[in-house]
Design a protein around this nucleic acid. Sequence first.
DNA 1: GTATTATTAGAGTATATACTCTAGTGAGTC
DNA 2: GACTCACTAGAGTATATACTCTAATAATAC
Lengths: 226, 226
Amino acid sequence: MKTRDKILLSSLELFNERGERNVTTNHIAAHLAISPGNLYYHFRNKSDIIYEIFLEYEKLVDFYLDIPEDRAMTLDDMTFYLESVFDGLWSYRFFHRDLEYLLDSDQRLRQDYRDFTNRCLASISRIFEKLAEAGIIEPQEEDLRSAMSLNVWLVITNWMAFLKTAHAAEASACLTLTELKQGIYQVLTLEIPYLTPAYRERVMALREKYRPSLHELGDTGTGVYK
Amino acid sequence: MKTRDKILLSSLELFNERGERNVTTNHIAAHLAISPGNLYYHFRNKSDIIYEIFLEYEKLVDFYLDIPEDRAMTLDDMTFYLESVFDGLWSYRFFHRDLEYLLDSDQRLRQDYRDFTNRCLASISRIFEKLAEAGIIEPQEEDLRSAMSLNVWLVITNWMAFLKTAHAAEASACLTLTELKQGIYQVLTLEIPYLTPAYRERVMALREKYRPSLHELGDTGTGVYK
DNA sequence: GTATTATTAGAGTATATACTCTAGTGAGTC
DNA sequence: GACTCACTAGAGTATATACTCTAATAATAC
């Protein structure tokens, strides 16, 4: 594997593990047992590394959220979208954590991320539209669909942060993909009122599969309050 | 005004303006035209300053979210809660921005914030309960109410971050309280399906008041996608 | 082989950051 | 007038951080 790719891989790994703020270029170089000079031969600066990682992330999500327009949408499709998006979120989880700072330090990234967000929102909205066409949810006005899509986006992109802050111990390490996917339970909660009678039970059963267990969330109190 | 209080005030101001990560203790001291030594006479370290600011924030929100149990809830109450919570969010907006890092660097804060979150979630859930008692929304099972409360929390606490990242320019400064309160539009979107026929129109009219105008959101594309 | 280019090591640098230390000052107390 | 004590200034420090520079080595092209 090329040094350049190794740098990207290690950076992502360290960023995810410790947070971008806590990982310096020297850490990355040390982790790979290469010199800082070597790292700076391949990348102009830390921002460049982050930007390239973002491009990978963007590509992955764009790939996942590609909506086939030649056929109707199924419940399996919806499950796939949800699972995939949370997979992506997990693989690049450092990104949303320090998002604001990252965008402030790189204008390219700011612009690209803005476009990325809008594409994602459009995809979510389109998914709702196709779910309605398939008779899974009731059709909605465009206004409402837009606002709902935005809420879905907010829940998805911030579920991870919620989990991290709700955990009592520092325990950043002990967060699992399984817990993350309980975010799907929250997303499906948003859909409940719009489900058609024909699909209601099936979707509710699907949702149940992602319900957070008290045991897993431990002493965070989630599900216990009032 | 006492130096100690001036430090807290200036810190909050600078943190909100530039982000905690970009504000050093030396900046704070310089901004107040006092010496770093003076600052460190009043606070053991930067974390201590942040912790005290959090305590203020906590107090404020707890005050806002105190639910009167001796009478029914009105639509005005709900409006007040929403307005107040977003006011609080605005005044201490630096906090949610760097939350994860802050919690990682201060165990006291982590524990307190966890409790704070659970209190807020309980309050939101209780508000839903009382809205149902007042005939404003349909009553819901506790499970659903909990999940909905969590979604409301996710939308509220992350609306600010969304706005900041959706804006094209760096423009961190040009974010306004008015824009922030468009988050209320998003929160009310969550309630729509549960509104009773008696209140539906009134709540929808209220929601309309917070609708983001295309002009204000400018070129973010929000509301335009698909 | 020789020339060129890509890659790497590793010491080094300018700056920043959180924080410390010493030496006070000024207002009140007895 | 001596003493205390809350408060303040300002120089200083240890460490970290992002990044640079020079020189050397490996790979490739001709």
